[in-house]
Amino acid sequence: MTANIIDAIVHLVENPVTHLVNYYQGKNRANNSGDALEEYVKDLFANSFDMDEKDRLRKIQETFSYLGNNSNPPDAMLCDGDAIEVKKIETPNAALALNSSYPKHKLYSDSEMISNACRDAEEWKEKDIIYTVGVVKDNELKHLCMVYGMDYCASEKCYSRIKYRIKEGVESIHGVEFAETHELGRVNRVDPLGITYLRVRGMWGIENPWSVFNYVYSRNTQKNFTFMCIINENKWDEFDNTDLLIEMAYSNKALNIQYIEIKNPDNPAQLQDARLITYEI
């Protein structure tokens, strides 16, 4: 059975690990808060808490078809399920640094930004992508959120159009020797010896989800830990295990599910039905 975001939320309520670094250092799985956050996200989807390393690795293998690196998106892909991108910030209002990769409305197998290992991990053409963002301060996880790229950022054409327009403008400069590159540009033979080159790179960033969705959710700073998730209604209806989460919300006052309307990232004049899931302790 394919793991999904509903499973992850259920497992989070059951295992709210906020002392991230201490928890994962004690298990020899992470040395810093960024790595610890990624390990926690793996455990949330795989439900691999409190397992010895051999059993945990097997459970993670059963859950994920791909686990990535810092150079290419995504950080993980669920077997026959969604892709996941994990981002750590240290202050509540900090933006997300995406570096050379523009925001992902969805993830496509023909994208030049993904690795061959990701492309060949399973048979797929496109995946919905979950942005999982954690605010980690003094090795403590203070806030965590999960939002889908399709609800968070515009479609790919919005970003690729800007990227290629800039790329064409850079490459139209006369008297400069350009080389083929996936970046915005590369200038070869800058100096008389012809041994120096210049890389022109895009450095993308995006406001964090709490800032983007501040019209439907505001963090309670008096709580030790807050979790926020937004799932549009069409995506919510795809899951067959939402009843489990709804039942859990009835019995746990810290967990709440609300009907909301969110802006369409491609046309903010349009509102879309969605669910807001929050958990605060």
Score class of each variant (00 low, 15 high):
217 Y>I: 01
248 M>T: 04
42 K>E: 10
242 T>R: 08
162 I>T: 09
230 I>A: 01
236 W>D: 02
31 N>M: 06
2 T>G: 13
160 S>T: 03
40 Y>F: 15
18 T>S: 13
237 D>W: 08
161 R>S: 15
194 G>I: 04
197 Y>S: 15
262 I>W: 01
182 H>S: 13
58 R>V: 09
134 G>F: 03
226 T>H: 10
32 N>S: 02
229 C>G: 09
278 T>C: 05
82 D>K: 04
174 H>P: 05
170 V>R: 01
1 M>K: 15
247 E>Y: 08
201 R>I: 03
34 G>W: 04
105 H>M: 09
274 A>L: 06
144 L>D: 03
36 A>T: 03
144 L>C: 05
271 L>H: 14
188 N>I: 13
230 I>F: 05
126 E>Q: 10
183 E>N: 15
193 L>M: 11
276 L>A: 05
246 I>R: 01
217 Y>M: 04
31 N>A: 15
280 E>V: 12
231 I>S: 00
178 F>Y: 14
87 K>N: 03
196 T>L: 09
18 T>M: 09
153 C>V: 13
232 N>F: 13
141 L>H: 00
13 V>H: 06
102 Y>H: 11
155 S>F: 07
244 L>N: 05
264 N>P: 00
231 I>M: 00
33 S>C: 04
255 L>P: 01
247 E>P: 00
55 D>V: 01
190 V>I: 07
72 N>T: 05
226 T>I: 06
200 V>R: 02
127 K>Q: 04
198 L>A: 10
121 A>G: 00
169 G>V: 07
157 K>Q: 10
166 I>N: 08
81 G>K: 00
27 K>Y: 07
237 D>E: 11
53 E>Q: 14
258 Q>W: 13
253 K>V: 07
161 R>D: 13
148 Y>R: 05
134 G>I: 02
93 N>E: 12
258 Q>I: 11
176 V>G: 02
34 G>E: 07
65 S>R: 04
20 L>P: 03
45 F>W: 07
257 I>T: 12
103 P>Y: 12
249 A>H: 09
99 N>K: 11
140 E>G: 12
37 L>Y: 02
279 Y>T: 13
22 N>M: 02
264 N>Q: 09
90 E>R: 15
101 S>V: 15
19 H>V: 10
170 V>G: 01
80 D>Q: 12
206 I>S: 07
12 L>T: 01
123 E>C: 03
24 Y>H: 10
54 K>N: 11
150 M>E: 14
105 H>N: 14
250 Y>F: 08
211 S>G: 11
100 S>H: 09
254 A>N: 09
147 V>F: 06
150 M>H: 14
88 K>D: 07
144 L>I: 01
231 I>W: 11
239 F>R: 07
151 D>V: 13
143 H>K: 10
203 M>I: 09
222 Q>V: 08
102 Y>P: 15
70 N>G: 14
213 F>S: 00
35 D>P: 05
260 I>F: 05
186 R>T: 15
197 Y>I: 06
78 L>F: 01
151 D>Y: 02
238 E>P: 09
30 A>K: 02
106 K>W: 12
66 Y>I: 08
126 E>H: 09
38 E>Y: 05
263 K>G: 12
52 D>F: 11
